[in-house]
Deep mutational scan, measured.
Amino acid sequence: MASQGTKRSYEQMETDGERQNATEIRASVGKMIGGIGRFYIQMCTELKLSDYEGRLIQNSLTIERMVLSAFDERRNKYLEEHPSAGKDPKKTGGPIYRRVNGKWMRELILYDKEEIRRIWRQANNGDDATAGLTHMMIWHSNLNDATYQRTRALVRTGMDPRMCSLMQGSTLPRRSGAAGAAVKGVGTMVMELVRMIKRGINDRNFWRGENGRKTRIAYERMCNILKGKFQTAAQKAMMDQVRESRNPGNAEFEDLTFLARSALILRGSVAHKSCLPACVYGPAVASGYDFEREGYSLVGIDPFRLLQNSQVYSLIRPNENPAHKSQLVWMACHSAAFEDLRVLSFIKGTKVLPRGKLSTRGVQIASNENMETMESSTLELRSRYWAIRTRSGGNTNQQRASAGQISIQPTFSVQRNLPFDRTTIMAAFNGNTEGRTSDMRTEIIRMMESARPEDVSFQGRGVFELSDEKAASPIVPSFDMSNEGSYFFGDNAEEYDN
């Protein structure tokens, strides 16, 4: 783990906690998980779902989305002020799938948001429990990260689609708070800032007046979040320049895209947490497990152990491969979309394939898809080993990566060399080191050039047997250095459309 220093740990961010010791953190995270579980059980009762239907990941996603929508204050306010045809701002819903006479049927349900809020609060001892809501947002974000390569979004903001390893959390809503900021990748933060800068260039009043003052505060806050992700002084200094700019424009845009590229080699610290679907927490609570009393951590053995003992089902389209669908969801559960496939294969105990080789589309089923041909199958979400999630980018030494994705962002704290394609990355730096950030740029390029592919990161860190909950005997895996390590390699994943 990167030293926490003055930073709060993510469990504290996750639970809005002030400084807590490890036991208190485990208890408050457990409380959050228990609340999600209780809410899910109650919703299944309301909807009269069978046990099997309640364990269907598509039903879980609909129920999670309903509660997130019920608590989305800004959108609710907007919907009330701008009524649109056929949208009731006070209601929320989605597809629920039921097994009827041996076939899967889709039923569109509609609930009062007020009623959903009441059920959620009741499951969370009367609190709004925003930490639990954020947790579900991060699960949705991790699922998107594993399912889609955001080529269009990258290109629109002047970045290269091969930089997708920097895009963790790119679909997280803005209201996801400190826990959300911690899991956002460098590219995601750059993209958010670039969008602001572009608006400022096109709209003279963007930075002016009372609204402009708020915009400015948001801009500086985002700059500080991004600065905190960088691990070298030169990158941090460049972020200070971007933040202090009187009138952010093209120079800042250039600096930010430069920094994003540099992060492929001088990786930023991005938190990883295993956020599971509500249909995993519900049955665990129903079986009598007391998360608050037992304590829970999002970055240790607990999620692995929970998945070892969970039964989750998914709808499967006619030509999809259930094992591939399982891999997709497994990666999402562990926030591992940008991790090295060699490491993932070792931990999972079966070969993890790149996205383009998977015969599976996303987990969600569109409303126009034919239910007649839908089957369902068990998702295999178990693992051979477990490993500690990392909050750091690993040290800054790398190795060759593949054509589709030119770097990785480690999820697990496991000893290995970190793949990246130096030639491709360095070719993108057209040696432009003039301007006010020239000395920093020169320094950053120097550090990137001296990074050695064969150097090892996370020295001495290994994986653990599932029986080793105290992480007492690390097993340090050895990897084939020459092997392909990137998930979005030469990829044809669908595009994420909101």
Rank of each mutant, 00 (worst) to 15 (best):
K273V: 02
R98A: 00
Q459H: 14
E339F: 04
P283T: 13
V155I: 15
D16P: 00
S392W: 14
Q308C: 11
A70Q: 03
D51N: 12
G187N: 04
L143F: 12
S287T: 09
V299T: 14
V343I: 12
S402P: 02
Y40H: 15
H272A: 01
I119H: 04
N319C: 12
K357F: 15
T92K: 02
M374E: 04
E210D: 15
W139C: 11
G132P: 10
S413C: 12
T45C: 05
R118N: 10
Q364M: 06
G393M: 04
F71Y: 12
S438K: 00
T437N: 15
T62K: 13
Y385I: 04
A234P: 13
S314D: 05
R150P: 04
F420H: 15
A263Y: 05
A27P: 04
A181G: 10
N101T: 14
K7A: 00
R195E: 02
C223T: 06
G485S: 03
D203W: 04
N370K: 08
T257W: 05
L381V: 13
C333T: 15
Y10W: 05
L315Q: 09
I116M: 11
K214V: 15
I217Q: 04
L379A: 01
S392T: 13
T92M: 08
L68H: 08
E64L: 04
F230N: 04
D255R: 04
L133M: 14
D421Y: 15
S345V: 06
F412K: 03
E24W: 14
G93I: 02
L306Y: 04
G268Y: 03
T92Q: 05
R355N: 03
L307Q: 00
C44K: 05
K273R: 11
G485V: 10
E73M: 15
Q149I: 10
G93T: 04
Q58P: 07
F429W: 03
N321G: 01
G169A: 12
K273Y: 06
E465F: 02
A85F: 01
P277C: 14
A146N: 06
I116G: 00
I425G: 01
S84V: 06
W104E: 04
T92S: 11
L193E: 02
I116D: 06
M43R: 05
E107L: 04
Q42W: 07
